[in-house]
Amino acid sequence: MNKKSLTQQMYEARWCYLFVLPCSILTGMFVLYPIGMSWYFSLLDWSGFTKEAKFIGFQNYAEAINDPFFWNAFYRSFIFMFGTVPVKIILGFIIAVFLNNQVLKLSPFFRTVIFMPVVTAIAIIGIVMTFIFSPFNGPANKFLMATNLTSAPIDFLGNPDTVLPTVMGVYVWKWLGITMMYWLAALQTVPQDVYDAAKIDGAQGYRLWIHIILPIVLPFAIVIILVEAVSALNVFPLIETMTAGGPFFSSEVMEVYIFRTAFVTDAGTMPRLGYACAAGVFWGVAVLFITALQGFWMRRTRRI
């Protein structure tokens, strides 16, 4: 009856500890340690390339909060998120509903095609898209001119008004395949008899969608929104390779801002790793806050 002591339990589980060790070391080195260090670096006045570093407390944070570029990048990241996630969720759902039809013979082919951009390297997509949207005979402009949709070429990536929507469009194109796959998985969880009922129902089908199928896939929707929202805040490679935040910082999202302050040396400016870390910490906390909020929302909906 008497319970084993903790040391006894731990001794018996010695193999378990051995097995978790390699992965724990890797995670510790490349995930946990960097998080801790970035908090520490954020308190330093440090270029990152020399040994000289001065402890300056929260001055980096104070400077970030007073930098309009910081806040512009901050808001832009959220504009990016709110502009892409709903489009992906709705478009992905519509496509999934169609391609979930077993009768549609070419459905596997369409799925493959729509998923294709997902597997291609994001940096390459960014670079290729600078060609596609080039104002000098780029295919996008050629097509628009040939079909008389515009009379003069549009400088998609060179105009501060069009650059962000263009990058957002490319982002949706690149990752829509994943959203579609999520929805296809969700649709597979709807019980077969519900589908059969829908088949018999015929004309009243749309009601069945709204009142029966949608509530069944709703818990999925929340997980999908959560996953997609977080990934829409991690768009560094696409923007860095497409526009590098330009023109005139008009597509600079938070990660590009952090990268620029940490590594890019424009004429006369020094890289500032300490400051970049402060911006990164601030950003990380903001993202974590949003994730927590969504997690809370998810729990509430599940309970109902």
């Binding site: 080195m29 490349f30 960097p34 990660e255 870390c277 950003w283």
Partner: peptide, 21 residues
């Protein structure tokens, strides 16, 4: 618990210490 927490930490924020390490 630690593992789940790490999912939500954005990359842009840990890259500098990784480089340093």
């Amino acid at each position: 618990g630690i593992l789940i927490a790490t999912i939500f930490i954005p990359q842009g924020y840990t890259i500098i210490p990784v480089f340093d390490l």
